[in-house]
Nucleic acid binder design. Structure first.
Lengths: 138, 138
DNA sequence: TCCAGTACTTGCAAAATGCAAGTGATATGT
DNA sequence: ACATATCACTTGCATTTTGCAAGTACTGGA
């Protein structure tokens, strides 16, 4: 699996810049969403994302997210064709980011998934604890 | 100034998708950061961002952020050359998003601006209230 | 009038995205 | 053993976006 440990060359030392260098594209956070909230674990599942991602973009982003340490990948022990992807601790720590982005858009745009939004709004801390619990349960 | 009021065509109704369609690029959040945290208001100031943005990209993003209702622009009454940009209410509501992204990167990457990070960590709510107060003061 | 400042625009090369077909390895069925 | 299906990509190509650096039009100051 893709694994890169050298310090990346960044445009600046600002933390926000580090975030957007890793996540500032159309697709990365959507993949993380599906992993975090819909329990997706396979390439095939990610291809079914609501927004319709291209195969080469999906492969590219999964590779990058692994390189950033946000996503881990392992071969399925029972079927060597299958790869199972999961969020790392670093990845699950993006839950507050993702939550705030959902809440921001829901407040200012005409969006769907109102059940999720209501859950988040009702008790953000409880929602985030649930996300973390499900992640920890494997 | 650029002003577009039609409902955009989105890849899905998911709130996160709406967010990344507006903000999922390398530069938009960095511009918002400089507006929100450094008090930048002019094109020339934004050009001085830490990361070195290209003139055409800056112009393009400012135009888009206006179209999305995140940024407002007005001509300076004393100098018709100057345009003053500011965050709208919708724009300032991105403060929690930006804050969580800063905290995430600071926790997982080797980043600078530790004073800001300490402030955010010490009392997130207080930090956000400060951002909002400064915004409201014009 | 000439020069400086402001906010872009433009031309071009490189990089990224998106569509759809193709590929190689593994698993299943006959 | 061979044929077919599945899985995770890869590839070819056209379009779009990014980034660099020079250029432009308008306004303000000397």
């Amino acid at each position: 699996m893709a694994r890169k440990k050298s310090a990346p060359k960044r445009r600046s030392g600002c933390p926000l810049n580090a975030s957007v260098e890793m996540l500032g594209d159309r697709w990365s956070l959507l993949i993380i969403r599906d992993m975090m909230l819909r329990g997706f674990r396979s390439y095939k599942e990610f291809l079914e994302c609501y927004e319709g991602i291209a195969t080469n973009i999906l492969a590219d982003r999964l590779s990058k997210l692994q390189a950033y340490g946000i996503v881990a990948a392992e071969r399925d022990p029972g079927d060597a064709r299958k790869i199972t992807y999961s969020l790392t601790a670093k990845g699950i720590d993006l839950a507050p980011v993702l939550t705030e982005m959902v809440l921001w858009a829901a407040a200012h745009e005409d969006t769907g998934n109102q059940a999720l939004v209501r859950q988040m709004r009702a008790d953000k801390r409880k929602f985030l604890a649930g996300v973390r619990r499900r992640w920890a349960a494997g």
